[in-house]
Design a binder for these strands. Structure first.
Lengths: 201, 201
DNA sequence: ATTATCTATAGATCTATAGATAATGC
DNA sequence: ATTATCTATAGATCTATAGATAATGC
C-alpha cells in the first residue's frame, strides 16, 4: 500500500535523523513513489509525520501487549514492559528512535498505550498491590523513566543490567515492598521477535 | 547584545511552537535585527537553536541552584528541585516549553545540571541516605519523571498537589523509608522570583 | 470507466552573500 | 579605521498543482 510506504519512509527518517527536517521529495524517493503521489495521501508533511508517529506507537503497543498478555500479576506486567522497552533498542531501533523524538508528547495522550497502562495502575491500586495516589501522575512518572532510559541507552553504553535496574526503580516507585522488588526476573523477557504477535488488547 | 537578542527570539519560538520550524527572517524580526546580521553571529539556524537550548538550560540550572543552595539534606535538595521545576510552568513558561521540546536529549549530557545531580546522587549513595545502584540510571529516572510531569502539566490541568506527589515518587524511588517520604514539605519552595539568584554552584 | 500514479513546472519561500550604511574604537 | 549592521538580491530549494500516463474495477 502506497500510504503505508510513505509512513514507513517517514518513520525511517524520524528515527535516523531525530527530526523531521526533510523535504517531500526524498521521502517519496525512499518510499519508491512519485513525488505528486504524496498529495493523494496526505495534505501536509506534518500530517504524514503525525501518522508515522501514531503508526510506530501502535506497533509498540502491540509488542508490549504480546509480551505481557499472559502475565497475571500487575506489577510483573509493568516490570516486563520496562525490560522489553529497553531491549527494543536492539530489536526495533526505529521504534526507539521515534520514542526518543516524540514519546514524551504521547505519554499522556490516549494512544491506546496510555489508557491501558492507566487501567493497570488503577487495578493495582485498587487491589492494594500498588501504593500510589494519583494514577495520572504515576503514569507520567513511569513513562518518563522509560523514555529517559531509552535515551540514555541510545547515547551511552548501558550495562546489561540496566533494564532490570530500571524495572526495579519503577516497582519501588509503585510502592512494592523492597524484598519483592529485588526478586530478580532478569531473564523473563524474550526478544520481541521470538514472541507471538496476536495483537489482542 | 545582538547575539543574545537572537538567542532570546529563538527561545521564544521554540517554547511557543514546540519546534524549530521557522525561517531566519521572522527570528531576526523578533530580535529586532536585520536579516543579514544573523550570519554575523551564527553559521546556521541549527547552531542558533542549539545555543538557545543551552542558554535556557543554563538559566534553569541557576534557578535550581539558587533555590537549593541552602538545603543541607541531599534528599530534600532533590525534592525541592522537583517541586521548583513543576512550578516553573507558571513562573517561567519559556523554560518549561524548551524542557518539553529538548529536555530529554540533555538529561544525560554534561550541561552542568547533569554532573551536579550526579554528584548529589553519589554523595547520597555513599552516605547511605539513598539506596540506589547505578547512579547514571537513577539520574535518568529522576530526569525522566520530572520531564514527563512538566509535559503532563502543560497539556492537562494538574492538581495542586502534583508537585508534592511527584517529589514523593522520586524520594521513594531513591530508597528513602516510607515514613520520611510522606513527611510533607509541600510549602517549602517559594516562587523562584522571590529567591536570591546568587548563581553559585 | 474510474481511480491512482507519475512527470513537469509555476510560484513561493528561504538561505547565503555582496555591497552600502551606520556605529564604535583609537 | 575598523567592525557591526542593514538592505537588496541571486540562486537554490520546496510546495502544491495541472495534465499525461498507468493501473485497477466493473
Amino acid at each position: 500500500m502506497t500510504r503505508q510506504a510513505l509512513i514507513g519512509a517517514a518513520r525511517q527518517v524520524m528515527a535516523e535523523q531525530g527530526n523531521t527536517d526533510v523535504s517531500i521529495q526524498p521521502i517519496a524517493d525512499r518510499a519508491d513513489v512519485g513525488f505528486g503521489t504524496f498529495y493523494n495521501h496526505f495534505e501536509t508533511k506534518d500530517a504524514l509525520f503525525d501518522a508515522a508517529v501514531a503508526d510506530a506507537l501502535e506497533e509498540y503497543g502491540q509488542l508490549l501487549d504480546a509480551a505481557t498478555a499472559e502475565i497475571e500479576d500487575t506489577a510483573e506486567t509493568f516490570a516486563a514492559g520496562v525490560r522489553l522497552t529497553l531491549q527494543l533498542a536492539a530489536s526495533h531501533p526505529e521504534i526507539t528512535g521515534i520514542l526518543r523524538f516524540r514519546g514524551l508528547q504521547h505519554v499522556h495522550s490516549g494512544t491506546g498505550l496510555g489508557p491501558q497502562a492507566l487501567r493497570d495502575l488503577e487495578a493495582g491500586k485498587a487491589s492494594g498491590r500498588f501504593d500510589i495516589k494519583d494514577t495520572q501522575v504515576t503514569l507520567g512518572a513511569v513513562g518518563g523513566i522509560v523514555l529517559a532510559l531509552v535515551q540514555l541507552g541510545a547515547t551511552n553504553d548501558l550495562e546489561a543490567t540496566a533494564g532490570e535496574g530500571t524495572a526495579e526503580l519503577v516497582l519501588r516507585m509503585l510502592g512494592l515492598p523492597a524484598e519483592e522488588v529485588t526478586t530478580g526476573h532478569g531473564d523473563s523477557a524474550l526478544p520481541a521477535s521470538d514472541r507471538p504477535r496476536t495483537g489482542h488488547r
